[in-house]
């Protein structure tokens, strides 16, 4: 599909098309990104921020991080957390999108309204509502579980045990992210021709086969992108954990986003914060590049 059709003679066309995007992204982010990398090699606290210049410390921030066994524990926890969240989000989102394709118009509209309403809820409010639902004293969830006979959940604290607490955080995150995945995939699904699906079904293809051989090839680019984005976002989760633990997470709650805040940004150590950010990007890039390369290659061979 990447065969250049007309424009081989006009080489500048793709660059012209990309120019506006490049100008905005490089223009606004180029300098900040360079600064970020630069101060990750510097002693850069509040005093240096006020002066506008730090003093070089070489690799010390990086060796501190890499040498910190606690950090690697945090990375491990973050990877597990990310994997669970991404799997749930993308799985549920795909399921909803597929269901929407089949659904009656009115049902689809209902689903769309529910999804968009969730999506349009500002993070601050979403967290407040979920906090209520899982509240120790007044939570609907505790009340409901007790009523349903799941045991006595009166005064059950969901955040005492970090595994449970991160479970609630997962619910909040998946709930908030599913609409984006579902709606984007639903849009991608409109490109799947009904006739082909019907023909496949008439040929006796099962549901999974139809999905795998007919639908997946069409939505693959979008699905891949959504998965990648979810990985990137879930890897950086901070706010939900911070607010839902009342701003005092115990060590079992330390994801890499929390770690970087507590260790550096929250206390004004921008140099080491920048180093953590760079390490995060490198870790993510490890995952992403293999993945993207595979993706691009697959498209080229098709």
């Amino acid at each position: 599909m990447s065969v250049p059709t007309v424009p081989r003679r006009i080489r500048s066309i793709p660059y012209l098309l990309l120019a506006p995007a490049l100008i905005v992204i490089v223009g606004v982010l180029g300098y900040p990104l360079a600064t970020l990398v630069q101060i990750s090699f510097q002693k850069y606290g509040l005093a240096e921020l006020l002066k506008g210049s730090g003093s070089w410390t070489g690799l010390s921030h990086y060796t501190d991080i890499v040498g910190d066994s606690f950090f690697w524990g945090v990375v491990g926890r973050t990877i597990v957390f990310t994997a669970v969240n991404v799997a749930l989000t993308v799985g549920a989102g795909t399921l909803i999108a597929l269901l929407m394709r089949k659904a009656h118009r009115a049902v689809r509209l209902t689903a769309t309204v529910a999804l968009v309403a969730v999506w349009a809820t500002p993070g601050l409010v979403a967290i407040a509502v979920w906090q209520w639902m899982f509240d120790y004293e007044f939570g609907v969830v505790n009340w409901l579980l007790t009523k349903l006979g799941a045991g006595d959940f009166t005064h059950h604290n969901w955040f005492e045990n970090p595994v449970q607490g991160l479970g609630v955080v997962t619910a909040v995150i998946v709930w908030g992210a599913v609409p984006f995945v579902a709606i984007s995939l639903h849009a991608a699904l409109t490109q799947v021709p009904d006739e082909v699906v019907e023909a496949a079904e008439l040929d006796g293809a099962g549901r999974l086969q139809v999905f795998r051989y007919v639908i997946l090839p069409v939505i693959r680019p979008v699905l891949a992108l959504l998965t990648l984005l979810q990985i990137i976002w879930d890897f950086q989760v901070f706010n939900q954990v911070w607010v839902m633990t009342g701003g005092a997470p115990t060590e079992g709650y330390y994801l890499i986003g929390v770690y970087s805040y507590v260790q550096s940004f929250g206390v004004g150590d921008y140099g080491s914060g920048a180093a953590v950010a760079v390490v995060m990007v490198l870790l993510l890039a490890l995952v992403a590049f293999g993945y993207v390369r595979g993706l691009l290659r697959k498209e080229q061979t098709q």
Binding site: Q131, E137, F159
Partner: peptide, 15 residues
């Protein structure tokens, strides 16, 4: 106290 031993005072006034 029946308040949350591991929690903050977010719902103290409502209680």
């Amino acid at each position: 106290s029946k308040a949350d031993k591991t929690g903050g005072d977010r719902t103290q006034d409502a209680t």
